[in-house]
């Protein structure tokens, strides 16, 4: 079966620095994958290569077997990849509802867009603050707004870069629940440093280190892996 997304020897060099080095990565339809690794290991760069924000220096990215290497971000988004970026990219001057409406509107009729907007507001529990200007919300709330815009886009692959950052314990639980719910109909790749959160959602985990894949295995095996402990987890018992 053709994988949903595939990176083949994907490499990203900035000047003399190789941020992502010959990464081979495969994700199947409806799969949920967690990506962990030290800050600076190349996870966010890898996401940017998948979404067209960066054009790989070499190697290829395939979406359902179709070569999307070098395609523009909006073209890749139209194929069905949505991303919540690490540093929130939201429309700060617009309201929560407007943010989601813009995401829902592309390629949809007015009625469809309106329906998706209201459904997404409810799903992300943002109805109560729908009229607020996003730039004036707290950081964790803006994370929710961004996740909601990605959902309103109705992508087939959802990339979440640190979705739980800046969220309270209770919100982290809710995010985990939402991710499992999304996974019933969509595939996801989730980058996160919060190991409690990872344990709540993860089955298979890929570990990045220094631009390469260090380990790829089931969650228990990865958290028990000595190399992963050395470079990433530290002394705390995982």
């Amino acid at each position: 079966m053709t994988p949903l997304i595939q990176a083949q020897a994907a490499t990203m060099r900035f000047g003399g620095v190789t941020a992502v080095n010959h990464v081979d990565f495969t994700l199947g339809e409806m799969e949920l994958r967690c990506l962990i690794g030290p800050n600076g290991a190349g996870k966010s760069t890898f996401f940017k290569m998948l979404t067209g924000q960066l054009v790989p220096s070499s190697g290829a990215v395939l979406f359902r077997g179709r070569d999307i290497t070098g395609a523009a971000p909006h073209e890749i988004a139209r194929l069905g990849i949505g991303i919540k970026t690490q540093v929130p990219n939201v429309f700060n001057g617009l309201t929560v509802r407007e943010n989601i409406a813009i995401a829902a509107a592309r390629g949809k009729s007015v009625q469809q867009a309106r329906r998706i907007t209201e459904e997404t507001l409810t799903r992300a529990r943002l109805t109560g603050i729908a009229q607020r200007v996003v730039g004036q919300l707290a950081h964790g709330q803006r994370q929710w707004v961004e996740i909601a815009t990605v959902l309103a886009q109705e992508p087939e692959l959802v990339l979440l870069d640190e979705p739980a950052a800046g969220m309270t314990h209770e919100e982290v639980l809710r995010t985990a629940e939402l991710i499992r719910e999304i996974n019933r109909s969509q595939a996801l790749i989730v980058v996160e440093h919060d190991m409690q959160f990872i344990r709540m959602i993860a089955r298979r985990v890929t570990v990045f280190n220094q631009g390469s894949i260090l380990v790829e295995d089931d969650v228990e095996a990865v958290l028990a892996n000595q190399a992963v402990r050395d470079v990433y987890l530290g002394k705390q018992a995982a």
Binding site: P38, E162, H193, V231, Y232, G234, K235, Q236
Partner: peptide, 12 residues
Amino acid sequence: EPTEGIQPSINE
């Protein structure tokens, strides 16, 4: 929020 988005070993 000094721990936001920081890997576990550095948080330690």
